[in-house]
Design a protein around this nucleic acid. Structure first.
Lengths: 241, 241
DNA sequence: TTAATAGTGTCTATGAGACAGTATCAA
DNA sequence: TTGATACTGTCTCATAGACACTATTAA
C-alpha cells in the first residue's frame, strides 16, 4: 500500500461505495427476503423506510467486497457460511441523495431455521417480508425494489437448472423437503418421480441415513457433497411449460 | 443532488471506482479479447503492461456505470451498440497500488468486421489477443487475467444455452456463419442439422433474403428479431458430453 | 461434370413428464 | 386396518445427436 500523495497523477472524485445483500429464505413455505428499517437520524436518506441490509464499504475494516458482504450478513442474521454470490452493481448519480453512489449487491440463500434476527448496528428493525406483493407494496429505500426484482429474477431463473434450493433447507434434509423448497421458489408443483430421478442423477447429494419423526414413514436424509458450489443440470425443469 | 456538507453524518473514506470492459470478438475463426497498453507516465501503475480497456468513473461526465462502460467501449472501438452485460465487480485493498480499489466489469460482444481500433486516450497501443494462451502468457496489469478468466467462463457457459454468438457476426448472416461463431467460442464442432433445427425452433431469427457471393450456393440471410437481448434455449448444447 | 457449400430426411436412444402403483411407518 | 407419506415402475412422446442424403450454385 502506497501513499497516494507520492503519485504525480491526481486521483479523481470518487463515488460513494456501498455493499447490499439480498438475503432469501423460505419460511412457512413462502419465499421471503430480509429487510431492515432505515435509521431516523438527521441526514440519513429514506428515514424509517425498509431497505436491504447493507451500507458503506469500510476501507479500514473490509479487505474486499466479499468480506464486506459477509460482515453485513452476519451482523443481521448471525449466519456465517451461507450460499453467497454476487448479483451485480448499481451505480449512478441520482440513486442516493448524498451523491454519485455505487452499490455492490450480493445475494444469499440461508435455511430459515438457522436465522436469528438481530437488530442494532444502526437499524431500528429487521423483518422477513414475502416477495410477492408485500415487498413491492411498501415503498423501499433507494432503488432497492428494482434490486430485489433483479435478485428474484436471477434466483427463479437459476432454480430451473441448478441445485440452489438445497441451500434453503437445513441439513440433513429429505428429498420431499428439498422438493418443497423448489416448489416454494418456483411457485408451482413439480412431479415427485421426475424430481427424485433428476436430483439423484446429478450425484451431488450424499445419503446420511434415514430421518425419523418428520412424517409417517422415515425418509432418507441427504446432505450436499460440496457446500461451496451449486450443481448445474443439463436441462431446465419444464421445457414443455 | 445535495451538498454533502449539509448532512450531519460524516461520509466515510471512499475506494477508487473503475469501470473495465472485456470486449470479445471472433477474428480469423478465433475468439479474441481487446487489450490496451498501460501508459508509461510517472505514477501510473503497471506502465507498459497490457490491460483491459477501462479507467476511473468520471462522476462529472458519466451518469451511470453503464454510461461509463459504453463511453470506454466507443473510445476504443468506435462501436456504439454492442451486446453489453455486466460481468461483476472486483474490489479489495490490494488490487491497485494506489489504494482500496473497485472495478465494475462489463463484457461486450462485437462483430469483428465492425471494429476500428483506435489508440489515444492515454493508451500507447491497442490490440486483439487470442484468449487461449497468449493472453495468459503475457503478464497483464492488475487482476485483469483473473477477470478475463471469469469473462471467458461466463461466455463459454452461456453460449451452451443462449444465442450470444449472434452478436459476434455482422448482420445479415447465414446459419453456417452463425454456426462458425458457436464453434469458435465453444472450441468444438457442432452438428449442422441439429444446429439448424435448434436455431430455427427458437424463433429469434428473421430471414431477410438470400446472400450471394459468400460461397458456391447462396444461403439465406438472417438478422435478429430483437437485438436488445439474447435468447435462452431450454437445453444446453450437448448433454451427452 | 465436378467441387463446394446449403439445406433436409431419417433413425435411434435418451430421458422427461405423467401417473399408477408399492412400501413402510404411526396410530 | 387405516391413513399418510416415501418411494418405484412403466408408458409415452418429444427431441437431440448422428449421419446420410439431396439441392443449388460456380467453374
Amino acid at each position: 500500500m502506497s501513499d497516494p500523495s507520492a503519485h504525480s497523477i491526481p486521483m479523481p472524485a470518487r463515488p460513494l461505495a456501498n455493499v447490499d445483500v439480498v438475503i432469501f429464505s423460505v419460511l412457512d413455505d413462502a419465499l421471503r427476503v430480509l429487510l431492515v428499517r432505515r435509521p431516523e437520524a438527521i441526514g440519513e436518506p429514506y428515514p424509517g423506510r425498509w431497505a436491504l441490509p447493507g451500507g458503506f464499504v469500510d476501507v479500514e475494516r473490509d479487505r474486499s467486497l466479499l468480506d464486506c458482504a459477509l460482515r453485513k450478513l452476519s451482523e443481521k442474521t448471525g449466519v456465517l457460511a451461507p450460499y453467497l454470490e454476487q448479483l451485480g452493481c448499481w451505480g449512478d448519480a441520482t440513486r442516493d441523495p448524498r451523491g454519485w453512489s455505487t452499490t455492490h449487491v450480493y445475494f444469499a440463500l440461508i435455511p430459515g431455521a438457522e436465522v436469528v434476527l438481530q437488530g442494532g448496528g444502526g437499524v431500528a428493525d429487521v423483518a422477513w417480508l414475502g416477495v410477492d406483493s408485500s415487498a413491492r407494496a411498501r415503498r423501499l429505500a433507494f432503488d432497492h425494489a428494482e434490486i430485489i426484482d433483479a435478485a428474484l429474477e436471477r434466483l427463479r431463473g437459476k432454480v430451473e437448472y441448478t441445485s440452489l434450493p438445497a441451500f434453503l433447507v437445513p441439513e440433513p434434509f429429505t428429498l420431499p423437503q428439498l422438493q418443497r423448497m423448489y416448489e416454494a421458489v418456483l411457485g408451482r408443483r413439480v412431479d415427485k418421480s421426475g424430481f427424485r430421478t433428476r436430483m439423484l442423477a446429478q450425484d451431488f447429494l450424499e445419503p446420511v441415513g434415514p430421518i425419523e419423526g418428520a412424517s409417517k414413514r422415515p425418509a432418507m436424509g441427504f446432505r450436499l457433497k460440496d457446500r461451496s458450489r451449486a450443481t448445474y443440470f443439463p436441462r431446465t425443469f419444464s421445457p414443455r411449460g
